[in-house]
Amino acid sequence: MEQSSKVRDLVEEALALNESLFLIDLSISANNKIQVLVDGDQGVPLSECIRISRNVEHNLDREIEDFSLEVSTPDISHPLKEKRQYRKNVNRILNIKTSEEELEGTLVEVDDEKIVLQWKTREPKPVGKGKVTVEKTATINYKDIKEAKVKIVF
């Protein structure tokens, strides 16, 4: 589809009307299937997906080039991609993969450069027999994160 920049502009135009929404991904396949993935600081109501979809659909001409359009939100299995997604998941448990290790902990802090995870673990006592529960903290820069997913807890 030659209109990929037009599609992006139309999506951005629709997102600008609700500052709590942001674009995660936009793809257009060879057969003109447009897929838009949006998220929001407080989630994304269905009505907003419909509004974004209509803004794109009503401003593209199917007579010139046919297309299909899907506007959706990331499900829980999607890895986090944008810094804003981390902010909305503070106090949730994340699984984080870096090139060196895999960590699981509660996201307790987020800024523009890094995140902070906290978790409890059982370790041998420094003196004597048995184990003691200790609280661990890890500070991870965004650039070091290979994959981050919210853990589903039932």
Score class of each variant (00 low, 15 high):
20 S>Q: 11
65 E>H: 04
55 N>A: 00
84 R>G: 05
61 D>N: 07
11 V>A: 08
151 K>I: 05
50 I>Q: 09
134 V>P: 06
118 Q>R: 13
72 S>C: 08
92 R>T: 09
59 N>P: 06
119 W>Q: 04
117 L>G: 07
21 L>T: 02
102 E>T: 12
35 Q>S: 12
85 Q>E: 14
135 E>A: 15
130 G>M: 02
77 S>F: 11
65 E>A: 01
118 Q>A: 12
67 F>V: 06
115 I>N: 01
97 K>L: 13
4 S>K: 06
1 M>D: 15
70 E>W: 00
113 E>N: 09
7 V>Y: 00
6 K>H: 13
146 K>S: 08
127 V>W: 09
105 G>D: 00
95 N>W: 05
33 K>D: 15
124 P>A: 13
26 L>K: 05
29 S>Y: 08
5 S>L: 13
139 T>K: 14
58 H>Q: 12
148 A>I: 02
69 L>E: 03
131 K>S: 09
3 Q>T: 15
90 V>A: 03
54 R>Q: 07
125 K>C: 12
145 I>F: 09
55 N>T: 07
19 E>I: 15
38 V>M: 01
23 L>E: 11
126 P>R: 08
25 D>W: 05
4 S>M: 05
69 L>C: 01
82 E>V: 08
114 K>F: 12
62 R>Q: 08
144 D>H: 11
42 Q>G: 10
21 L>F: 04
35 Q>T: 12
152 I>Y: 13
27 S>D: 11
23 L>A: 10
28 I>D: 04
133 T>R: 14
133 T>D: 10
9 D>W: 03
144 D>L: 06
1 M>N: 09
22 F>V: 07
17 L>C: 08
64 I>C: 12
11 V>M: 03
109 E>G: 06
42 Q>H: 14
111 D>G: 04
44 V>F: 05
128 G>D: 02
138 A>K: 11
21 L>M: 10
140 I>V: 08
137 T>Q: 14
24 I>H: 02
53 S>M: 00
107 L>A: 00
25 D>H: 12
61 D>I: 01
136 K>Q: 13
124 P>S: 08
93 I>D: 03
135 E>I: 10
28 I>K: 12
43 G>N: 01
79 P>G: 05
117 L>H: 06
47 S>H: 13
19 E>G: 12
103 L>C: 00
32 N>I: 11
55 N>P: 02
139 T>C: 13
117 L>Q: 05
54 R>G: 01
57 E>Q: 11
72 S>H: 01
130 G>H: 07
154 F>P: 03
120 K>F: 00
34 I>M: 02
97 K>V: 14
